[in-house]
């Protein structure tokens, strides 16, 4: 079970209709990501990173080929099943944090647990634990507008991690952060990867992020150009 890949894609294509023509955003992606990995999809803007991450997150479906997450084919899921998969097994982190502004930090982190119907006492405990992991236990009652960018992204990490998902998908998580905060949140996520064995999949073109990755999958024009593990460059 431990070695069974979390994510497997096979000959995955994604094309977008652009008026008369079509645009091939992903072209023959074969990929396997195992439990516990700290992996990044890297490449220039427009290379297909977000598109691939969205398919892995069951937010989108491939045009052809297959993508399996935790043994389930995303292309066959109903939206209800996809929602359930996201709710129970996946966490998302976005470039723009996307905290809900009218809710407190505590409530933002609590939301995924509300969807799971976890009872109040246990919920409180889990939220406090998650906020402690990201070092924001004392900001539980703040509103997102009162937080710095770095703090906001740490709340987003807490929200993604609070339900202890199998995979966290992070799309350009450092794009709106300065260097110090970028390093801070990368260290936080690395720590969580070690302590909770949560799998992290990044989409990024930020060198600071790439420095932390254990595995780097480089996309160019929707194709995998290189797939390298840290400290080796033998894969291609």
């Amino acid at each position: 079970m431990q070695d069974l890949p979390l994510v497997v894609t096979h000959a995955l294509d994604k094309t977008y209709a652009l008026g008369q023509t079509t645009l091939k955003a992903l072209d023959g992606i074969d990929l396997a990501i195992s439990r516990g990995e700290f992996v990044g999809l890297v490449g220039p803007s427009g290379s297909g990173k977000t598109t691939l991450l969205n398919i892995i997150g069951a937010l989108d479906v491939p045009t052809s080929g297959s993508a399996e997450i935790l043994g389930r084919s995303v292309e066959t899921l109903t939206h209800r099943e996809a929602a359930r998969l996201r709710n129970e097994h996946l966490g998302f982190i976005f470039q723009t944090f996307n905290l809900l502004p009218v809710y407190t930090v505590f409530e933002n982190v609590e939301f995924p647990l509300l969807l799971q119907g976890i009872e109040t006492g246990r919920r409180k405990q889990m939220v406090e634990e998650a906020l402690a992991w990201v070092g924001l236990a004392d900001r539980a009652d703040s509103r997102p507008s009162q937080l710095s960018g770095g703090q906001s992204q740490r709340v987003a990490i807490a929200r993604a991690i609070v339900k202890k998902p199998d995979v966290v998908l992070a799309d350009e998580p450092t794009a709106n952060l300065d260097a110090a905060n970028s390093h801070h949140i990368m260290k936080t996520m690395l720590q969580l990867n070690r302590d909770l064995h949560t799998t992290f999949v990044f989409a990024t073109h930020d060198e600071k992020v790439i420095g932390y990755l254990h595995r780097t999958i480089t996309l160019v024009d929707g194709r995998i150009a290189r797939d390298e593990h840290a400290g080796d460059s033998s894969h291609s």
Binding site: L59, H79, R80, A83, N87, F94, N98, F111, P112, L115
Partner: peptide, 16 residues
Amino acid sequence: YGELGVRLAVGEDKTH
């Protein structure tokens, strides 16, 4: 849409 997008991503069903 921002809020709704987040809720969908977190795993709330569209219908809900």
